[in-house]
């Protein structure tokens, strides 16, 4: 197992290097430079040239890439133009917020999705199955940002149960209940699509397992239905559910971009969108590399978890 993990970690290095090249090239190729973005209407060629020089963007592309890569390997991600602070400080702070949001959404979608899937499979073609399938279909079809806006309208503007946006109250907040109040709407809005996907796949995985001989044997031996479902069938089905959870974890993380904008969650997705619009090269590059590294890491974790669950997968 140790060597398997090591092998996977080593194979991640070229992936990450490739990502640095791609994000650097994309940022270099998109039209509009940071100086133009900063100066706006005052972007005379003369002013742009001077500001680009001040920002260290007058060097050749290859040189800039290696300076950036070299600095990053020593932990220096550079300084953001648009926020005037170290890129890494900003990313870590924002990533923390994204993890809280995406992590909560992930827990919600895993628990609700698997539960719905198990119930549907147990009562296949029954009323509960049909009802769940219907709700799941709606959940998958509604764009999360639209759902988010509708939730704001209902729960924050009309009913005034929950705050509209942000992560903490501006005044007197900062504790756990305050965070929870701000987290409920974005986390649910973010979890809806993934819940649907997980529910559908759990249902089919469960149906497959429930048809197998060992389930019939268990039932024949008089094991209670609940024990059969959650003790025997779900455990076996988890082997095919876990990779789906892994994919959905990535999905939730990337889906948080929309949700973070709608709910003004101070996370990394919103940061990247702002940074791209402002042509904040170092912040975009650093942010993308960081998120990609996390993504790769999650994937490795999922693979490892899967091989732990199912010894046949071990390479």
């Amino acid at each position: 197992m140790g060597s398997y993990i090591l092998k996977r970690l080593v194979s991640a290095i070229p992936v990450l290097l490739g990502i640095t090249v791609i994000v650097f090239l994309i940022m270099a190729m998109i039209p509009g430079d940071p100086a133009t973005a900063i100066l706006g209407s005052y972007a005379t060629p003369e002013n742009v040239e001077k500001l680009n020089r001040d920002l260290g963007l007058d060097k050749p592309l290859v040189v800039r890439y290696f300076i950036w890569l070299g600095n990053m390997l020593t932990g220096d991600f550079g300084r953001s133009f648009s926020l005037n602070r170290p890129v890494l400080d900003e990313i870590l702070e924002r990533f923390n917020a994204t993890l809280i949001l995406a992590g909560t959404a992930f827990v919600i979608c895993s628990v609700l999705g698997i539960l719905a899937g198990v119930i549907s499979a147990a009562k296949q073609y029954g009323f509960a199955d049909k009802a769940i399938t219907f709700v799941v279909l709606i959940g998958i079809s509604v764009p999360s940002f639209f759902l988010g806006m509708m939730m704001i309208l209902l729960f924050a503007v009309n009913l005034r149960w929950l705050p509209v946006s942000g992560m903490y109250a501006i005044y007197g907040g900062g504790d756990l209940p305050d965070l929870a109040k701000h987290l409920v709407m974005p986390a649910f809005a973010l979890a809806v699509v993934a819940t649907g996907v997980i529910a559908r796949l759990s249902r089919s995985a469960m149906l497959e397992v429930l048809r197998q001989d060992f389930i019939r044997t268990a039932r024949a031996k008089g094991v209670g239905e609940r024990k059969v479902l959650y003790g025997h069938a779900l455990r076996a089905a988890m082997v095919s559910i876990i990779p789906v959870l892994g994919i959905q974890a990535g999905f939730v993380l990337s889906g948080s971009v929309f949700i973070e904008i709608v709910f003004q969650w101070p996370g990394v997705g919103r940061m990247l969108v702002d940074a791209i619009l402002k042509r904040d090269l170092l912040l975009v590059q650093g942010g993308v590399v960081f998120v990609a590294a996390c993504y790769v890491f999650f994937n490795i974790c999922v693979d490892v978890a899967q091989s732990l669950l199912d010894p046949r997968i071990k390479t």
């Binding site: 919600i108 198990v118 147990a122 005034r160």
Partner: peptide, 28 residues
């Protein structure tokens, strides 16, 4: 309709309650 879907509803409610959410109108 079913005991298990009741359980699902209860679980989601518990999750929300566990997060410290109180449905009292917010002092906005």
């Amino acid at each position: 309709l079913t005991r298990r879907s009741l359980f699902a509803a209860a679980a989601s409610t518990a999750l929300v309650a566990g997060l410290g959410f109180s449905p009292a109108p917010l002092a906005a």
